[in-house]
Simulated scan of single mutants.
Amino acid sequence: MASLGPAPAVLTRPDPVAPAPAVTVCTDSAEFGRLREEWNRLHRACAAATPFQSHAWLHSWWLSYGRPGRLRVVLVRQEGRLVAAAPLMLRPLPFPTLTPLGTEISDFSDVLVEDAPAASPSRAVDALRAGLWRLARTAVVDFREVRPGSTVEALYARWPGPRRRLDDSPCLELPALPMDELVGRLPRPRAQRARAKLRKLDALGIERRVVPAADVDESVRRLLDLHRLQWQDRKVTTEHVRPRFAEHLTRAVAQMARTGDAVVTEFTLDGSVVAADLTFLSPRLAGGYLYGAHPQLRERKVDVATMLLRSCAEHLQGGSRDSVLSLLRGTEPYKLHWRPEHRVNQRYLLARHATAPLIGAVLADVRARSWAKRARTAWKERGAGPG
């Protein structure tokens, strides 16, 4: 654990009573693992946090995807109490960047800061910013997929050096309402079709069961088997069928189910599990992360998306009034049928004057990728490309 020492005066607000927060950087995987209990407490104390910032998710991701020597977890302690954390890793290529752990397979990234009274300035945010400021001497800090309202926004607002904000992935959200009220928000013809689909689900006798935390390991493996079966001979997210993803998901969700950050639901028909769904939960949102469904459901014209949406809505009942049913990243047509609210994740780039050119390099890379994507789309639309 490397100590960063006291924060520079330009980045902190002096307090005549409380001692200055201690800022350190964890670079050791085993040490990161031992943070679980205090990380879980901090995670619960940060209202903006999502399950993607839980210790179980991040540490498991690091074990499956991390590279030795690249871990950079900034920790802020006030009189020994963990009050803020930024889980990052160093990516040296194509240019030095510090990115959140889990970015590739996480729908949201953020930092954790213990909620403070609204009237008082957050010393923890200032100290966390000071730690990132030091790390930014040789790399640009690149926060991808930041959900609107996340804690990173406070860091960005107070960042003293070069910075840039970009749009990232689009997301869709529904209010936390019972299924009959979600259906009632639809235009009448579409609502009638949705009710007919729900009646068919009930008539078929498909039963829903929330898997106990003790049985989640086996259920996640079954979900992944169904997911592979569902997408066989069809285009699928490549990472979702790799062994390292299965290893990570099984390990992480087993822990997350025990802390209430995840729930696995199975659907049975004639005594056999025909579908399974993994939903992530937090006080402010619930979102279906991954599911698997047997092809026989398609053959029987079962609307799996409607079945899963109803199940996810049930997980939210009794939650806070400002919670939402998140459809996570992507604007697939089946999501748009429910008249969701469009939200756009943000990308925040933070640098110092010495590393400001790296922001330009990132922006150039973003433009190049965007141009290449448009070119591929146009090529396919002209019928000259594959697919």
Rank of each mutant, 00 (worst) to 15 (best):
residue 3 S to V: 01
residue 3 S to G: 09
residue 4 L to N: 03
residue 6 P to H: 04
residue 10 V to K: 12
residue 12 T to K: 08
residue 18 A to W: 07
residue 18 A to P: 02
residue 23 V to F: 04
residue 23 V to N: 01
residue 30 A to I: 07
residue 33 G to W: 03
residue 33 G to N: 06
residue 35 L to F: 13
residue 37 E to H: 13
residue 45 A to M: 11
residue 48 A to I: 02
residue 48 A to S: 15
residue 50 T to E: 07
residue 50 T to F: 08
residue 52 F to G: 00
residue 69 G to T: 00
residue 70 R to H: 13
residue 72 R to F: 12
residue 77 R to M: 08
residue 84 A to H: 00
residue 100 P to G: 07
residue 102 G to W: 06
residue 103 T to S: 15
residue 106 S to D: 02
residue 110 D to T: 02
residue 115 D to C: 12
residue 117 P to D: 08
residue 120 S to T: 06
residue 120 S to V: 11
residue 122 S to H: 02
residue 126 D to M: 09
residue 127 A to W: 02
residue 129 R to V: 01
residue 136 A to D: 02
residue 139 A to S: 11
residue 143 F to Q: 00
residue 144 R to Y: 07
residue 149 G to D: 02
residue 149 G to I: 01
residue 150 S to E: 04
residue 151 T to N: 10
residue 151 T to F: 10
residue 157 A to E: 11
residue 159 W to D: 00
residue 161 G to Q: 01
residue 167 D to K: 05
residue 169 S to D: 10
residue 172 L to N: 05
residue 180 D to I: 05
residue 182 L to A: 10
residue 185 R to E: 08
residue 189 P to K: 15
residue 190 R to V: 08
residue 197 K to A: 15
residue 203 A to N: 04
residue 203 A to E: 10
residue 204 L to A: 00
residue 204 L to Q: 01
residue 207 E to R: 11
residue 208 R to Q: 09
residue 212 P to L: 11
residue 215 D to T: 00
residue 215 D to C: 09
residue 218 E to P: 00
residue 220 V to G: 04
residue 221 R to W: 01
residue 222 R to S: 11
residue 224 L to R: 03
residue 225 D to F: 05
residue 232 Q to M: 13
residue 233 D to L: 14
residue 234 R to D: 12
residue 234 R to Q: 14
residue 239 E to S: 13
residue 247 E to K: 06
residue 249 L to T: 00
residue 254 A to R: 06
residue 258 R to C: 12
residue 260 G to E: 08
residue 260 G to D: 11
residue 261 D to V: 03
residue 270 D to H: 06
residue 274 V to T: 04
residue 276 A to L: 07
residue 278 L to C: 11
residue 283 P to C: 09
residue 283 P to R: 01
residue 287 G to T: 02
residue 288 G to K: 02
residue 297 L to V: 03
residue 298 R to S: 15
residue 305 A to D: 11
residue 310 R to H: 10
residue 312 C to F: 01
residue 313 A to Q: 00
residue 319 G to H: 10
residue 320 S to A: 15
residue 322 D to Y: 05
residue 330 G to Y: 03
residue 340 P to A: 11
residue 342 H to N: 12
residue 342 H to K: 12
residue 343 R to M: 15
residue 348 Y to Q: 08
residue 357 P to A: 09
residue 357 P to K: 03
residue 359 I to S: 08
residue 364 A to S: 12
residue 369 R to H: 12
residue 371 W to K: 14
residue 372 A to T: 03
residue 374 R to H: 12
residue 378 A to T: 02
residue 384 A to I: 02
residue 385 G to A: 15
residue 385 G to R: 05
residue 386 P to H: 12
residue 386 P to F: 13
